[in-house]
Design a protein around this nucleic acid. Structure first.
Length: 585
RNA sequence: GGCUUCGUAGUUCAAUGGAUAGAACGAUCCUCUCCUAAAGGAUAGAUGCGGGUUCGAUUCCCGCCGAAGCCA
């Protein structure tokens, strides 16, 4: 049981006793971590909130509650300010907590009380175009959420919904037939495909007649033309293997790669069914879903206000020319995931600009009678220097591969500088772990909703609140254990904590079990990132202040135990963010 | 025009309605005869403007100002 839950129980019991009644249901989360250690480890504002109801003053009520809880070996209490009850955990109780965690493979992280079947849709790059920096957020955040959700006991299915049926194939097909360099394709298929795509793009801009020709190729493909299908299949295969290389570097794995093309056959029947049900109807040749009036106008994604008048903002599911849209595919995808995978919850880790789109399709899907907890986990845009979103096709996009290469290269220079004597093979491995880690941590340590300006130095920083700082704290622990190799350690003996740095490190260590589940409350990995950073900082301070190997007896044993647990929590917490750690650096 | 998101130190970011708003980078100082200095310690520096709700507002509500996005 985590400390806040324990304190919550004590508090709730005491409040019931004092008030002579059980607490109302809406009284939850009364015990929170204190923002400042001067106010103890945890605090409660219950007295201030309840004083008015029972017509007494907050400090008097707080005093009654404190008296009712009574003293024990867990914590001491004080009343402060306008009526806060501050709980200061006894160091001995932290020592017990650290001991328990050392015997627990889950490091104190509880399983969720309501395990769900969750499909997480993230990354989703387009075929025949390399991933660019714009894919970083979805890919890294989605992967981290999947890891956390799995660890707390949910059944997680990750699905890479690649764009393998988009309009870009019109250009690629024409390019394949007219300007493809076959030998280049054999040597480096991804680059050649990209070259072809870019080249045709330029040609289309120069020659307006070309675009309809490309479109005709697309229509042939969609009509099932065998030659075009064959080319398409090769493009998809080649692209997938190229993408897989990037995912391998990032240590990211998908359970499925069901792209847009997987849903082709489902689209027509789906639209017909909606017409039959009366949900969708024809408008100017297209088939649309309109507002059903079930929501107040302001919240209705199918209405938009213009000059004071509400007008329809339909969700188009079939164009006048018979073509289908993203919305149609997404509806079919929701169907598939709900029915075939028994998904309770489907999470889309997709940028904030898509917010309206998802509101619409989620609403349509509910009206079709498909229930589920559908969530759009939005994130802010990556901007260019001009503070405008990084756009594809501008020719200015930075490929994800370039970002990773640059990250590893920069890390390599630091390794060279700091550890010149390391064997080259190990230098390379450390550079890779540090570089990739830096990119991931830069992403995960930020609140996902904020936009940021793309900047090499920021994304690849190696000083301060960055992955290498965390990795280095792990390395420092490891260096201690290298010196005591062969020495038998018994982690089950009780710990003795006296130094402030030891106590503070313990205070953070025992919080791991309460922090991990918080990540999923609002799908925010930065909560975990921030905790791990605090932990690493506490460890560095401890490392400077408390010599481990030079100490003796219980003190030495206790400090070694703290080091052991710190290394486990660091490695595990970073693991939930998909960040690896080296043993030396 | 409507809707969404956002506005915090010089810069980049934090802060489930809580107390004296936290970090990092940058700046200025200290600390390696000591387990890895990719480190530790110290100093200076911020909530766009105006109302409201509340015991208490960076957070919730309203109105401005400004930024970005989405829908036409």
């Amino acid at each position: 049981m985590t400390i806040p839950i324990l304190l919550q129980q004590k508090l709730t019991n005491a409040l019931s006793q004092v008030l002579g009644a059980t607490l109302p249901e809406d009284f939850k989360g009364l015990v929170t971590p204190s923002a400042d250690l001067r106010f103890g480890d945890y605090q409660s504002n219950a007295a201030m909130m309840l004083a008015k109801r029972v017509k007494t003053n907050p400090r008097a009520l707080a005093q009654q509650v404190v008296d009712a809880i009574g003293n024990d070996d867990v914590c001491s209490m004080e009343i402060a300010g306008p009526g806060f009850i501050n709980f200061r955990i006894n160091p001995g109780f932290f020592a017990v907590g650290v001991g328990e965690m050392l015997g627990d493979a889950r490091l104190g992280v509880p399983f969720t009380e309501s395990p769900k079947s969750i499909v997480i849709d993230f990354s989703a790059p387009n075929v025949a175009k390399p991933m660019h920096v714009g894919h970083i957020r979805s890919t890294i955040i989605g992967d981290s959420l999947a890891r956390v959700a799995r660890f707390v006991g949910h059944k997680v299915i990750t699905d890479n919904h690649i764009g393998d049926w988009g309009t870009q194939f019109g250009m690629i097909l024409w390019g394949w037939k007219n300007i493809l360099d076959v030998s280049a394709l054999e040597q480096n298929p991804i680059d050649e495909l990209l070259r072809v795509y870019k080249d045709v793009n330029v040609q289309c801009k120069e020659n307006p007649d070309l675009l309809p020709i490309c479109k005709a190729e697309l229509v042939k493909l969609q009509g099932g033309d065998e030659e075009n299908l064959g080319i398409w299949k090769r493009c998809v295969d080649v692209s997938k293997s190229g993408l897989q290389k990037i995912y391998d570097r990032l240590d990211i794995h998908f359970d499925f790669w069901l792209g847009e093309s997987h849903y082709n056959d489902a689209l027509a029947p789906l639209v017909d069914e909606m017409i039959e049900k009366g949900m969708a109807r024809e408008s100017e040749g297209a088939i649309c879903v309109f507002s059903d009036g079930s929501l107040p106008a302001q919240e209705d994604p199918f209405l938009v206000q213009e000059k004071g008048e509400w007008r329809a903002n339909p969700c188009i599911v079939r164009k006048a020319d018979g073509g289908f849209l993203y919305a149609t595919t997404d509806l079919a995808t929701l169907d598939f995931r709900t029915k075939n995978w028994d998904a309770d919850s489907i999470w889309y880790v997709v940028g904030a600009p898509q917010a309206l789109h998802f509101r619409q399709i989620f609403d349509v899907e509910r009206r079709r009678g498909v229930t589920g907890d559908f969530r759009h986990i939005a994130f802010g845009s990556i901007l260019g220097d001009d503070r405008r979103p990084f756009k594809t096709r501008s020719g200015e996009t930075v490929s994800l591969q370039d970002v990773l290469d640059e990250a590893v290269e920069r890390a390599g220079k630091v390794v060279e500088e700091k550890s010149p004597d390391m064997p080259q093979e190990e230098k390379d491995r450390v550079a890779s772990i540090v570089g990739i880690g830096a990119v991931k941590f830069a992403e995960l340590s930020q609140n996902r909703m904020t936009d940021y300006v793309f900047n090499w130095d920021k994304m690849l920083a190696l000083q301060g609140d960055t992955a290498p700082y965390l990795q280095n704290s792990y390395v420092r622990v490891k260096s201690i254990f290298r010196k005591v190799e062969g020495e038998a350690q018994d982690w089950s003996l009780p710990l003795v904590l006296s130094d402030d740095a030891e106590i503070h490190l313990s205070r953070l260590l025992v919080r791991y079990g309460e922090v991990v589940p918080l990540v999923l409350d609002d799908c925010r990995p930065n909560i975990l990132a921030s905790y791990i950073f605090d932990l690493a900082r506490a460890f560095h301070s401890f490392y400077e202040a408390c010599p481990v190997l030079k100490s003796v007896g219980d003190v030495r044993r206790s400090r070694l135990a703290l080091c052991e647990l710190t290394s486990r929590v660091l490695k595990h917490g970073l693991g939930l963010m998909g960040i690896d750690v080296p043993d030396r650096m």
